[in-house]
Simulated scan of single mutants.
Amino acid sequence: MTDTALESLYAYPRDRTWVTANFVSSADGSVSVDGRSAGLGSPADKKIYLLGRELADVVLVGAGTVLAEGYRGARRATPLPIAVVTARGTLTPDLPLFTDTSVPPIVITTEAARMPPLPADVVIAGEQEVDLNVAVAELAARGLHRIDLEGGPRLFGTMVAEGLVDALNLTLAPVLAVGDASRIAHGPVVPPVGLALESVLREDDVLLLRYRRRNSG
């Protein structure tokens, strides 16, 4: 496919707030190898990962993923902010997220979190736990309607439980990772959420799957 056709296929709906989760998984359901998703990566997966960022207004990610994956801030020509969810205040101002960026990140946290002063737009969205409905509403209030959810599994699972995930882009890596790694989503027990398959792309043995939640507009 041409880049233009790929962008059209993966484009966000207009005129509404929309959350698309982007994940890679092994064939046996592992979300990582040796603790990092990069162990499952491929050129095709990287292309879709970068495209997800290019099409979005903001990247939404949990603090655990920021620390495990060594997240840096946004550095593209038209930078999009990184919004980090942390209920416990585990972020420090010396992280690359804050020191290597061209736009201040957004930190979504709680009243109970104890953090040092951060060079960020800090949003309080709950007392003890982050209210993700408030988090999404705060992003939308900032004009950030196209939300690229990059992880981790706990944040993804909780977003699903709250009915906040509209679509899933899933790269299926042709490996059996075994081990004790997490699946791509875990969290509160909820009834299964139905998905409609929107497209399937293949590059060599890698499958690129696009799903939409069945009751999403």
Rank of each mutant, 00 (worst) to 15 (best):
L80Q: 13
G143N: 07
A141D: 13
I48V: 14
T78D: 09
F98C: 11
R212L: 00
Q128W: 09
A181W: 01
L118W: 12
R146P: 01
T65Q: 08
L139G: 05
F98D: 14
T78L: 09
E111G: 13
T86F: 00
E129W: 09
I124H: 11
A87M: 09
V33P: 02
A83E: 15
R114C: 12
A185D: 00
Y211L: 08
R183P: 13
L9D: 15
G62L: 00
I108P: 01
A181E: 08
G35N: 07
A196F: 07
S30F: 06
A83W: 11
G217V: 13
L118K: 14
K46Y: 14
V193M: 04
A181S: 15
L118P: 10
R114L: 12
M159I: 08
L197F: 02
R114Q: 14
S8F: 15
T17N: 12
R75Q: 05
E129H: 15
A120P: 04
T86V: 00
L172V: 04
T99D: 15
Y12R: 08
S8A: 14
I147M: 03
S25N: 02
G163R: 00
S30A: 15
T65C: 13
Y211I: 02
G157D: 05
Q128G: 06
L208T: 00
N133L: 05
A196C: 10
G52S: 11
